[in-house]
Amino acid sequence: MKNILFILFSVLGLSLSAQVGINTPTPRAMLDVNGNYNLRGKLVVQDANNKLSEGRDDQLLVSQGEGNAPTWKTLRIPDYEANKFYLIFNNSFSDREGVKFTASEESSPTSRSASFTKNNTFSTFAQFKKIPGLTKIFKVFSTQSKTYFQFETVVHANFGTVGNTDTSIDYGCGIFVDDKLVNLRQGNIKASSASNPFLTHNQIGLVENLSKGDHTVSVACSRLESYNINNNNPITLGIGTSVASNIDSFISQSSLKVDVYEVPQVFNTVTN
């Protein structure tokens, strides 16, 4: 090793512009070492500010590409406890387009308990419409997972002013993963002494132990049944969209939050 270092520094002293190879007759860099390299002292590099930097303990020297000075990076590996769930993926989405339903678009299932069954495919839900901006892809990395969905929207109907008559519309919204139902909630919007009523609809769903890989979440809603509505004065139902001028698309917009908790099985290193 002493002989190698002597030859190295001698050659560098003779010609600083020449390429030097150790254990290779065809060096491909200013210094090309074909073999093991043992460093006992400091490793110092010149950073982007032309200052010498030794880095800190446990840092790695990382290339920034041709023509750029290398830089020190800290390797951060999170500490995980076995068999505990951690938040691995989370994101939120919004939509202002929503969906609208006329009286002729009611689904009116004969038996809601039979029709609205977990894991039924979306194609079996008659007259359900997907909210366009809430169909999104999320990832699962572990076979042990819990995925939570939080959906919020505004339901709006262009009812006129009504006294004591029970004039209302049933509706339902479902959360689907890979076009299979994981959660469904029903509600009712009722006419009142004020015209064009609206209400906020909140819904939380959960699905466990999805397969590893990409999955698609979507939200679909339907107008189920109307009560005491005059057929000569048809009522439009809006979910995630306005059907009268008393609210706008900002107020009526929908949102969806996705949180995936996992028992980690895949560890991706992160550098800052």
Rank of each mutant, 00 (worst) to 15 (best):
N91V: 03
F93S: 07
S94T: 13
D95Q: 09
D95H: 10
R96P: 07
R96F: 04
G98E: 01
G98P: 04
K100C: 06
F101R: 03
F101D: 04
A103H: 02
S104I: 05
E105L: 10
T110C: 01
T110L: 10
S111I: 12
T121A: 15
F122H: 02
F122E: 09
S123P: 01
F128W: 01
I131S: 08
I131N: 01
P132A: 06
P132E: 04
G133T: 02
K136G: 06
F141T: 15
F141Q: 14
F141L: 14
S142F: 00
T143Y: 09
Q144P: 09
T147P: 11
T147F: 05
F149I: 11
Q150K: 15
E152D: 13
E152G: 15
V155F: 02
H156M: 03
H156F: 04
H156A: 03
A157C: 09
F159E: 08
D166F: 12
T167H: 00
I169H: 10
G172E: 08
C173Y: 07
G174F: 00
G174I: 02
L184C: 01
R185L: 12
G187N: 04
I189M: 07
S192G: 15
A194R: 13
A194D: 14
S195V: 11
N196C: 07
P197V: 01
F198K: 08
H201C: 03
H201M: 02
I204E: 11
I204D: 14
I204C: 05
L206K: 13
L206Y: 08
V207W: 05
E208K: 15
N209A: 06
L210I: 03
L210R: 04
K212I: 14
G213P: 02
G213A: 05
H215Q: 07
T216M: 09
T216H: 09
T216C: 06
V217M: 06
C221T: 05
C221D: 01
L224T: 10
E225P: 01
E225R: 14
E225G: 04
S226T: 12
N228D: 13
N231F: 12
N231P: 07
N233H: 10
G238W: 00
